[in-house]
């Protein structure tokens, strides 16, 4: 975890890029997109606490 933080925190460090042919993505952007997908899936599946019902 510390390594991860220091990678991000260092402004001088060159970016980490992942690529498959024409597809190329910066690690930071990839994480943002994966987190969005994760949030969406969690929102669909996690049970929502049932509030007080009223007529």
């Amino acid at each position: 975890m510390h390594d991860l933080v220091s990678i991000f925190a260092s402004l001088d460090s060159p970016g980490i890029y992942l690529g498959w042919g024409a597809f190329q993505i910066q690690l930071g952007n990839l994480i943002v997109i994966l987190v969005m997908i994760l949030l969406f899936v969690l929102a669909l599946f996690l049970p929502f606490p049932s509030g007080r019902k009223r007529k």
Binding site: L39, F40, L42, A43, L44, L46, F48, S50, G51, R54
Partner: peptide, 14 residues
């Protein structure tokens, strides 16, 4: 002060 009973999912908080 209330919402229809179907408004019950985490998707509504975004």
């Amino acid at each position: 002060e209330d919402q229809p009973s179907y408004v019950a999912s985490w998707i509504y908080v975004f």
